[in-house]
Each structure stands twice: as C-alpha cells, then as structure tokens.
Amino acid sequence: MVNLKVKLGKIQLKNPVMTASGTFGYGTEYADFFDISRIGGIIVKGTTLRNRQGNAYPRMAETPSGMLNAVGLQNKGVDYFVNHIYPEIKDVNTSIFVNVSGSTIEDYVETASIINELDKIPGIELNISCPNVKEGGMAFGTSCLSASQVVKAVRKVYSKELIVKLSPNVTSISEIAKAVEAEGADSVSLINTLLGMAIDAEKRKPILSTVTGGLSGPAVKPIALCMVWQVAKAVQIPVIGIGGIMNANDAIEFMLAGASAIQIGTANFIDPTATMKVLEGIEEYLKRYGISHVKDIVGALEL
C-alpha cells in the first residue's frame, strides 16, 4: 500500500491530484464520469464579489498542443456561490477550495471573509494572475508590491489555507513567490495561463473578442515545470504545480521538480477522467520504484 496523502500548509489532502480553477466547474459537471470524491482537491471556478458576465464570444482559440481562453471570470458572484452552489457541493468527500478574484483589494478581502465562514471550505486560492480581465487579476500578480499588498490584506481576514496562484507573465516568478510567502501565504500554485494571441489571417482579425487570452495545455508544460523548479527552491512553503499536465508522467515530473501537489486543467476538457488516470499512474509509479510515500518524490530530482 502506498501512502498518497500530502500536506499542504495547514491542511492535508488525500492525494496530490487537484483540479485547476476554471476547468472543472464546481465538480458536479464531472459527476457522471467518475466519483469526484476520489480527487485530492477540487478548486472551483473563479469567484468574485459580484456577478460577472465575462467577455464576449469568441472566448477560445485552439492552438498547437493547447488552447487560448478569454473567459474573463464569468461567475454569479460570491453570494450566489454561498446560497446555491455551496449547499450542493459541501458534502462531497474531498477538499474543496474556492478560487477568489477581484478588481480591487477590497473586493478580494470581502469575498475571502465571506468564504471564511463556510465550514466545509478548508481554503481559498487567491487568483492574482488572471490575464483576461481589464481591472485587477493579473495586475496584482505582476509586481511584488501589489502581490504583497493583496495577500497581506486577505491574510488579515482569512484564517484557513491561503493558496496564492501566480502568474508566469513576470520577469521573476520566484521574487513574487517570496513576496507572498513573506505576507503569510500558506502555499503557492503555479502557473496560471501565459498571455497569448491568435489571428485569423483570412479575415485579418484577432480570433478572441479580447484580442489576447491565456494559453494553457501541453504547449506551456516546459515553462511551467521550469518555474515550479525555480519557485520550489526559492520558498519554504509548499508549491502546487500547474501547466499542461496531461498524464501521470507529467504530474510526476512536476513533483520531482518540487511540487507537493499538482492541478489538472485543460486535460479535463479532452478526457473528463484525466484526474483518475493521473492518480492511478502516480500510484503505479510509486509501487514500481518501491516508494511507500508520495512525499518522497517531492523535489527528488537528481542533478
């Protein structure tokens, strides 16, 4: 029997396989395909203080080995989440985290303090890295000062696990990671999408209504892996690896690079059962090498 439990700051997950925000809805969208309580942690769709309609269609462009999206945090707001979605998902037997985003520091603080009252939500993922909104989002995550300010403010009102999701669209992601660690983040997750663009040459027009969007999928994996490796060396808090993970091998690479847990994102769209295949593959890898605890492969890269 291998032990798959991982410690993530203040909490423990039953296994290191999580789902990335914005790719797994509220979990219920996937319930027809498998028992979603087998997932280590579910990070639900980005939630803001007020209802957001998101960006105009088209919001998606397929790219070589990936996709661009410009959804723009469409959600019905935190009150709707508390009253209508939370009651539906609170008894799913896994750790459910809410991804929190905002246009101002006050928005982040108010949303986080509302979610702090929900017993069955053990943590939030602070999204300071969304590239698809005009105000806030990535703007907070691209300078050490603004990243520190928002984390500091949220830390005052939020007592549970505080994960901070980092943007790769920066000069040094390690510096941002150190800045949010200093303000009390319990863990960091990376990477959010990379800023990208797609053009229709025949029409001489951008494909996305917002012109630019966020790139995800296997195309970004080598960049994500490198950033996880850099950040894991720079901070003491746990790192959650995200970026183009399609299979167990990808997930194991992230863990060897220093990730304590990983998130599956875009792969969920192509194979709704991707999380379960990754979980089973990690278990098989550990057995094959006679490793009894998954934590023993975290940062075990041999140089």
Partner: peptide, 21 residues
C-alpha cells in the same frame, strides 16, 4: 459555437441571451 469541453465546464461557447451569457 466553438467549445472546449461540451459539458459546461470551460465556459468558452457562450452566447448572449435575455438571461446573459
């Protein structure tokens, strides 16, 4: 509309309606 998932997770295929996107 172009879509990524087909089952309501990615929110990419929206159309504007009297109920919003």
């Amino acid at each position: 509309n172009t879509m990524a998932c087909g089952f309501g997770a990615c929110l990419c295929c929206v159309t504007d309606t009297t109920d919003g996107h």
